Amino acid sequence: MRSVIFILFASTFSLYAQRADINVKVGDPFPPFELKNLNNKTITLDDLKGKVVFLNTWFNGCKPCVEEMPELNKLKDKYKDQVIFLSMTLDSKEETKQFLKTHDYNFEHLVDAEPFLKNVLGSKAFPRNIIIDKNAIIRNIDYGLPHIKNPGEEELKMADYTFFEASLLEILSK
């Protein structure tokens, strides 16, 4: 009985914690934004309407952000014809370009996004992965890829890109 109560408490606390570190939630419209990409082109929410968007928020000093990038690239490779893969980074254009010289990360990058990420989204945890439907409604919010322990293995291992696939496929099927 104690273990059931603990699990319920932990689940409730976990759900509250997830909501407490971001201002938006599943079912909300994604907030309007106007940010520049690495080529100085302005991208807005209106540019994305009518498309499913997988949005990753990150910064180059975030170890979990960097660790999940190879798996996010695999997700993009698999769904690139059906989904817009976009990143918003706290980093400047120059910092992001420098970072990309040594790290393969194939999303379109919106830079200098700190004011939007912190003041509008209220994001206090990174990485964050948000799936937005064709009507600009938030359909899924996750932290980075979780670390899991496979049966028979001693060490935790980061999940692969398929962690996001079920949510993405559900949204694409609508």
Rank of each mutant, 00 (worst) to 15 (best):
D46Q: 13
E114M: 09
A20C: 03
D142E: 14
M1G: 15
E34K: 15
Q18K: 14
E68W: 04
G27N: 12
P146L: 09
F33N: 08
L38Q: 10
V111T: 08
L100Q: 09
N140G: 04
F6L: 13
V66Y: 12
F85D: 08
E68P: 03
S87E: 06
V83T: 13
L75G: 02
D91R: 13
K76E: 07
L168Y: 13
I171R: 14
P146V: 10
N135M: 01
W58D: 01
T96F: 07
V52Y: 06
P151S: 11
E153Q: 15
N39F: 04
N40A: 07
N40M: 05
S92T: 15
T44A: 01
N119G: 11
S123V: 05
S123E: 10
D21P: 00
P64R: 04
K118V: 05
L86A: 09
I138W: 00
I171A: 04
M69E: 05
D160Y: 14
L90R: 05
T102Y: 13
P32K: 15
L156Y: 15
A136D: 08
S123T: 10
F164P: 09
K80W: 02
D112W: 08
K49W: 07
V83K: 10
S92Y: 10
Q18N: 13
G122P: 11
L8E: 13
N56T: 06
K93V: 02
G27T: 05
F116I: 01
V26L: 11
L145M: 10
Q82E: 13
S14W: 15
T96Y: 07
F164R: 03
A20V: 04
Y161P: 03
I84R: 03
L35I: 15
G61F: 06
D104P: 01
P70D: 08
L72K: 08
T12Y: 09
F30Y: 14
F6A: 09
K174Q: 14
P151F: 13
E34I: 05
L110N: 02
M69L: 05
F163Q: 08
L110I: 06
C62I: 04
K74S: 06
M69T: 07
E94D: 12
L35T: 08
Q18I: 06
S3I: 11
M158T: 13
K97A: 00
F107A: 02
D160Q: 12
L72V: 04
I5W: 14
F163E: 12
I131K: 05
F9R: 10
D133W: 10
N40H: 14
E153I: 12
Y16P: 00
